[in-house]
Structures are given as C-alpha cells and as structure tokens.
C-alpha cells in the first residue's frame, strides 16, 4: 500500500514538474503493478499477525477495565457463583471433582467422535442429556450460561489448547472461510473490521480485533451475560446479515477459527465488554 501511494505521489509530482511523458508512463505502470499485488495478497487472506494480537480488554475504557478486574464488582461473577451452585446441586460433581475441569474450557471447540465439532455449551448439554438424563438446556438460557461461565472461569488466564489439524481441519477451514466472506446488505467480512481496521473508531467505539476470550462475558449493552455465539449474532445483525442460530455448526466452526486466531491470549471469562 505505501509503495503504490508513493508511486502515485511520484507520478503526480513528475506531472507537476512537467517531466517527459515516457517517465510518467513507467511510473504509472509501476503504480498499477503494485496495486495488482495488493489485490493478490488480499485474496490470499493473510491471518492476523500473531505479534499484533491484542485482547479486547486493551480496547476498553479504564472504567470498564476496572469493572472486569474487580472480582466483586464484575457482574459476570453472579453467573459464575450460580454455575458453581448448579454444578453441585445437579450432581455434576459426582463425576467431576472440584477443580478437575480446570483448563477444560481451553480445549473447546473440539471434535467429538459422535457429535462432530462441539463447543463447551454442546459438551455440557451432552453431559446433561446422557449422564444426568435430563432434557438439554436451551442455548442462551440462564442455566446453561451459568454452567458455561463457571467452567470457563476455571480456565481463567490459560491460553487456548485447541486442535485445528487432522480431522478438525475441514471445520477450521470452514470457520476461516466464514471470517473472510463478505455477507449481509453491507457486504462486509469479519476481517474488514477486525483485521484491517482494529484500533480505529466505528462511531463511538474503538474496533477491537474480535477475539473470543472474554466469553461467556458480561456486555454492558446487553446488561447481562451472554455467549460468544450471541455476540457473533450481533456482529452479523450489525452488517445486516441473517444471523445463524446460537449453537449452529457455522458459528461453532467460526469459534474454532477465532480461538486459533487468539491462541496466545489467556481466557478472561467473565470478561466485561461494551
């Protein structure tokens, strides 16, 4: 980009200075060549540079950061507390000892031999149905959010440990494809905001890199705790695309790509976001 801009600048400068037309032409050709290169690299979809990865926390105001950091004032802990209670009341601890699930949330989404690619919410529901023999919890219900918030909070500070190769690779590729596909009436892809324009303003907000590590998280806009899939639905609605239902394969595949993209960040759940 800077090179093509420079060539353009040079072109106009030479024009201004009234240098021979031939020189102009060469410079113009150079400019169009570098542009073509830009288009090529764009279609090759480079992933976010690992050295540039910044948690959404870095894009918050100091007030919102301190709300997340304060273990009492952070409202997300209301769900964590309730999840812990539920974990004991519904008998989850008959199999899973206290603290045995530490680090478990970092390994999701993962491939299950029967269910395919599943995230933590789907794993909780598999346990509820098969082991506890109760009806599955509704996605985004209070009960499921509390359990996933509690279990994810046990991995706070740990980086993702997901597998994206082997049998998981088609899912990873599909998730990556979702990230780079334009959609909706605004015809925007995730990367156009979260790779190309993070740190810049979008109306009153600073655009983050779109990492999933705060979720399940408390969003001030929602005034409640919500899942990552609900957050993605908001992005899709924002670009006027029809959102997929929470828990859908499309979003779980995207979740896998997002987790890989944020792999060096620690989990912050319950994070506080705008």
């Amino acid at each position: 980009m800077p090179l093509s801009w420079l060539s353009w600048k040079l072109t106009s400068l030479t024009r201004l200075a009234g240098v021979r037309r031939a020189g102009c032409l060469i410079l113009t050709l150079l400019a169009s060549l570098t542009q073509a290169e830009d288009i090529l690299s764009f279609s090759a979809n480079p992933d976010l540079d690992a050295s540039m990865v910044r948690s959404g926390y870095r894009f918050l105001t100091p007030e919102t950061r301190s709300l997340q950091d304060d273990d009492f004032a952070n409202p997300g802990y209301l769900w964590v507390d309730q999840g812990r209670q539920q974990f004991h009341d519904s008998g989850c601890n008959a199999c899973h000892q206290e603290g045995a699930l530490t680090g478990a949330a970092t390994r999701y989404p993962q491939l299950d031999p029967e269910l395919g690619l599943i995230n933590l919410e789907a794993r909780i529901n598999q346990c509820v149905e098969d082991r506890l023999e109760r009806p599955a919890l509704k996605y985004e219900s209070h009960a499921l959010l509390s359990l996933s918030a509690y279990i994810t909070n046990l991995s706070k500070g740990r980086p993702y440990q997901i597998i994206v190769t082997g049998a998981a690779e088609p899912h990873f590729t599909a998730g990556r494809e979702y990230f780079f596909s334009r959609r909706g009436q605004l015809n925007l892809a995730c990367n156009q905001c979260h790779d190309d324009n993070w740190g810049r303003m979008l109306r009153g907000d600073k655009i983050s890199q779109g990492h999933p590590n705060a979720y399940p998280g408390y969003r001030l806009e929602w005034q409640t705790l919500g899942s990552l899939h609900r957050r993605i639905q908001d992005c899709d609605t924002g670009i006027r695309a029809r959102p997929f239902p929470p828990g859908s394969t499309e979003y779980t595949q995207l979740e896998l790509y997002l987790a890989w993209r944020a792999r060096q960040l620690g989990l912050e759940s319950p994070g506080v976001r705008r």
Binding site: F72, A73, P75, L78, W79, Q82, Q223, T224
Partner: peptide, 9 residues
C-alpha cells in the same frame, strides 16, 4: 459493605 443482586431492572 458491598452488595450486589442479580436482577434485570
């Protein structure tokens, strides 16, 4: 003393 309650308000 700090007190918080879960409520949708």
């Amino acid at each position: 003393i700090k007190a918080m309650i879960q409520h949708e308000m």
